[in-house]
Design a protein around this nucleic acid. Structure first.
Lengths: 131, 131
DNA sequence: GTTGACGTTGACGTAAACGTAACGTTACGT
DNA sequence: ACGTAACGTTACGTTTACGTCAACGTCAAC
């Protein structure tokens, strides 16, 4: 079902991305499809990388971040130092995300306050200068 | 303390923004400082608008969104229909923010899972093939 | 009269992640 | 042999909110 080499169309279907995206990732050296003449053929390795890329994006890593992380493993394999480094980076990212969530929480409750106030004013339109 | 008209410097200090920001906002027709010769002087109205702009930004409204909202009030004053409209827009924005928060929560817990897994693998480096 | 500090107007640069032409090449079906 | 679908490349466009010069005006102080 999943052959060793996949065309760009098959990749798009499998990962739900556009051809442009795959070409773009290639240009950014995130994946390295082989060429059959001019056409791209994506290897198992490309698929593994793409999986990690898409996962990483969900976590808010930039493509550049991901490129560096993937390169780390390309150079020396998944040995302990690389894994440890990745762990650290991911931990930092997690901290960032939690800070971001905290800010978002504040903004949300502030906005809720504003809305409550607005609701009051709106209500006062119905009962003009009541009390 | 807060004179009717303020220079760009005073504004920057008061609102903690750069001159560039104020000029940019003027170019986007968010504020309308008067001119003393070539220089800008910011009115009370500009300050009121800037307050709303900065508040709105915290809630994730784009400058264009804010311009439209402010224009709404410029045309007809803070009457009920405008306020009601604003209330609706803000409510939608709140809903967006809460969706965003939900996504962020998922991403955070997923990343935590990944980290937990990474921690396991790292531990296994110390006790190679133990058990 | 000149030096600074501050002000002004453009205009171009930045960052991220692709989208979107515009146009050339290949491969396949008939 | 020919149409056309699919693929390729190159390069500019998009979005947002300013930053960063460059080149010049202006006003008070020395």
């Amino acid at each position: 079902m999943t052959p060793d080499l996949m065309t760009i169309r098959e990749m798009c279907a499998a990962f739900d991305v556009t051809p442009r995206t795959l070409r773009f990732y290639e240009s950014k050296e995130l994946i390295f499809p082989v060429r059959q003449g001019t056409r791209r053929l994506f290897t198992r390795r490309d698929r593994a990388r793409l999986t990690l890329i898409l996962r990483g994006k969900r976590f808010g890593f930039s493509l550049e971040d991901l490129r560096q992380l993937l390169d780390l493993y390309d150079r020396d394999g998944s040995q302990e130092p690389q894994l440890r480094r990745t762990y650290e980076i991911a931990s930092e990212r997690l901290a960032q995300m939690e800070r971001q969530r905290a800010e978002l929480d504040v903004a949300i409750s502030d906005l809720k306050e504003q809305l409550a106030w607005g609701a009051e004013v709106l209500a006062s339109f119905r009962q003009p200068a009541a009390e």
